[in-house]
Design a protein around this nucleic acid. Structure first.
Length: 557
RNA sequence: CGGAGUGUCGUAUACCGGUAGUACGUAUGGUUUGGGACCAUAUUGACUGGGUUCGAUUCCCAGCACUCCGACCA
């Protein structure tokens, strides 16, 4: 296409507020334009890139045997009520009513729609498995849009849903999608870390995020030094080494403790190690029930882990007044003799210590030699601890914290949706059974931004060839017919070319070319013609070289 | 939703309780033509609504919008 026909223009300046490279360059080079916060126009150049990303994803999904279809964007509200997600979604669900007063959800993810579609058919085990997917605009009323396309309120997502007779069959598909994602991101020029993660409002038992390491990313995760284990901070497991758990249990006693409220105050007052102290954190769930999380003093509670283990949808820390309301005291909470309506959830790290110390539910009174089982009972025991850099992974490597951009994920859903929505198939024994399910998402717009995040320099973008809006940026300096002929020839031979035929200065053309970031730059000018043809340069090269005009097509392949 | 901040031509910015500048852009003409070239001319602006004031773009209040930091996600 001729650049003179692009109505969108590059701009020399961009708001000083824009800090993130992909945000800045995508706007400055005319790939996208903001409408309102978190909602963007994809301009002609941006659309070409997005279409290429879509094509790559589609090719790989089809290769894996997935079937493309599309659901309505408006989802009947009753489906979301069936799965109770009108209550539990982490993003704000957007709802609208039609003229009859029927309620609809603006789709933010499509499990309900896909399950409803499938349950309308009489499916036999012979029809299974299948994987159906779509590209569709998703709506999420995010608290805060951020970083251009990195976090928006409306975006294109590829979402796939697979249906299986049993878990074993599902696991094959999970692995297949894992491999498919590796191929997709590989073709997009993105190196991903596959990070074990929390399912959140999607439901199910386990899932993996595909994360591209980046300073501007929002996904924090831990990766072991040997690279064998990677996990989101909300799921990261680590070794809780034995402390003094071989010690003999001593007699429980109460002592006066004129100390402050913090853990350090306890350490100083008793002159005992931090790990021997019990950390007590009182939470209140969405139903107003009390949950006491207890953990070894040198560790912290991870709220997501606690949420999952306790089955809570929402948790918040109790206020000082609420602590006193159950007969305890801020800074001196203890599981020993705590009010019976409080659900005690212990981290397994408490098994690594003996004769612990901590509060006695009364101001300035501490308990010494507290031991689990003997002195207090727990309702649930498990892993509620927050991982930290330098902790040891379960297989003995060292964990390091890192962060990145989550571009895709794969979820095990199990029977989560099929049971709630009563979706069944007929198995070979004639019995109706629930589907075992998985789902698999890729954020297309975010992926575009991530590519720019990875491929840019101080002058602009350096698109990988697989997604570049054009393969060649043909630039004519001054009027010359030769450029026009070359343009027509390239078009004829099927090369995607952007031809800068504008009557502007050379500097402006070069600057725009660097900014837009098309892989090959071909310059035709009096000088180049005198030197024997065209100047050709890859965007990532410093020096150009002269090639004969008839060789241009050969040079770019 | 909590915290912080900002709203001035299309864009980026300046100043100011009393006539709102500048640069880029855009338009026209001319000179240029290898890293955002130059000259001339033209063009366009105080988020909305209240209040204080002789007078408000400026000060105050409210609303709206946007940005940044936190809690959430593709």
């Amino acid at each position: 296409m001729k650049q003179s026909q692009l109505f969108t223009k590059t701009s020399k300046t961009v708001s000083a507020d824009i800090k993130i490279a992909s945000h800045k360059f995508l706007i400055q080079a005319g790939f996208i334009s903001e409408s309102v916060a978190g909602r963007y126009y994809f301009l002609p150049l941006g659309m070409r890139v997005r279409d290429k990303v879509i094509k790559i994803i589609e090719e790989e999904m089809n290769k894996a045997g997935a079937l493309k279809l599309i659901t309505p964007v408006l989802h009947p509200l009753e489906f979301w009520k069936e799965t109770a997600r009108t209550e539990s979604v982490g993003f704000e669900l957007m709802t609208i009513k039609d003229r009859n007063g029927s309620g609809f959800v603006l789709g933010g993810t499509a499990e309900e729609m896909m399950v409803d579609l499938v349950r309308k058919y009489n499916i036999s085990y012979k029809d299974l498995p299948f994987n159906i997917y779509q590209f569709s605009q998703k709506f999420r009323d995010e608290m805060r849009a951020r970083g251009g396309l990195l976090r928006v309120r409306e975006f294109l997502m590829k979402d796939a849903y697979s249906f299986h007779a049993d878990e074993e069959d599902f696991k094959k598909e999970y692995q297949k999608m894992w491999d498919t994602y590796m191929n997709i991101f590989n073709r997009l020029g993105l190196e991903t870390v596959v990070v074990e993660s929390d399912n959140g409002y999607i439901g199910g038992d386990y899932c993996h995020e595909f994360v591209v390491k980046s300073e501007v990313g929002e996904s924090k995760f831990f990766i072991s030094e040997d690279g064998k284990y990677a996990s989101h901070e909300d799921t990261a497991k680590f070794k809780k080494e034995d402390k003094n758990n071989t010690e003999e249990e001593k007699e429980l006693r109460e002592v006066e403790a004129n100390r402050g409220k913090t853990m350090e105050d306890g350490v100083k007052f008793h002159n005992l190690p931090l790990w021997q102290q019990i950390k007590d954190v009182l939470f209140i769930n969405e139903k107003g029930e009390y949950i006491l999380a207890i953990i070894r003093g040198d560790l912290d509670v991870n709220e997501t882990k606690l949420k999952n283990i306790s089955g809570a949808i929402d948790l918040r820390m109790a206020t000082d007044e609420e602590v006193r309301a159950i007969g305890s005291e801020p800074g001196f909470i203890s599981p020993v003799g705590i009010d019976k309506k409080v659900k005690v959830i212990a981290d397994e790290s408490l098994r690594t210590i003996k004769n612990a110390y901590g509060g006695a539910n009364k101001k300035n009174l501490d308990l010494m030699n507290v031991n689990i089982d003997r002195d207090f009972k727990t309702e649930i025991e498990g892993d509620i601890a927050m991982a930290k850099s330098e902790f040891e992974s379960l297989d003995g490597s060292i964990l390091k914290e890192d962060k990145g951009i989550e571009v895709g994920n794969i979820f095990q859903l199990g029977y989560h949706y099929s049971k709630k929505m009563n979706a069944k198939f007929v198995d070979n024994d004639g019995q109706e059974k629930f589907y075992y399910m998985g789902c698999y998402g890729i954020g297309v717009d975010r992926t575009v931004a991530t590519i720019v995040e990875k491929y840019n320099d101080d002058k602009g973008i350096l698109w990988p060839e697989s997604v570049a809006p054009f393969k060649v940026h043909l630039i004519s300096l001054g009027k010359n017919e030769e450029a026009e002929n070359i343009y027509n020839d390239l078009i004829k031979s099927g090369v995607e070319v952007l031809y800068d035929d504008r009557e502007v200065s050379a500097g402006e053309k070069f600057a725009d070319s660097d900014l837009i970031g098309i892989p090959y730059r071909v310059v035709i000018s009096k000088k180049s013609l005198k030197n024997g043809g065209a100047e050709i340069k890859k965007r990532n090269e410093k020096e150009s070289r002269i090639v004969k005009i008839e060789d241009i097509t050969k040079e770019i392949n």
